[in-house]
Amino acid sequence: MAEIQTPPPAPQTPAGPQKIDRRTFLSWTGVAWVSFAAATTGALSIVLRYLFPNVVFEPPTSFKAGFPDDYEIGVVDERWKEKFGVWLIRTAEGMFALSTICTHLGCTPNWLSTESKFKCPCHGSGFYKSGINFEGPAPRPLERYRIMRAEDGQILIDKSKKFQQEKGEWNNPEAFLTL
């Protein structure tokens, strides 16, 4: 570092065959350090990008869940809980898909049908059937997933799109399948 800051060699020193004037030197220095910094940053960002694979071997994010008539009104359906992490709840008006991930720390709450609530075993967060939180440390309601009709009339649930109640997203037509 020290050498960098030193001004060009004093005139009495027998320097290289030809002298480089101060301005040229500074511009070379500038180019050198800027491109070096850019290259280093670039290399680092390549490493960071490397951490994100283009293909992930994880279950598909959307799935078909059969026809609405397969579901009973007023029941929290747990058939997709294990495979896709989704509760399907059918109400009188329609259906919605609730994420099984606790908004506190990501544990899987249990549906306690007798108490009619979701209770997270990790830190005791409680949620109503609608997904609204009412006890425990969970900071916000459970998320809902995009739910719609596929071309063949089946229910299609797309987990890549989430709707959060506190953002008013539950009013989105894709957050609730009106039947």
Partner: peptide, 19 residues
Amino acid sequence: HSGSDVRFALLGGRFVGAG
């Protein structure tokens, strides 16, 4: 999102799995 955040970079996946 869950597929592009710092946790994903750490875990190599959306959840604790093979990655």
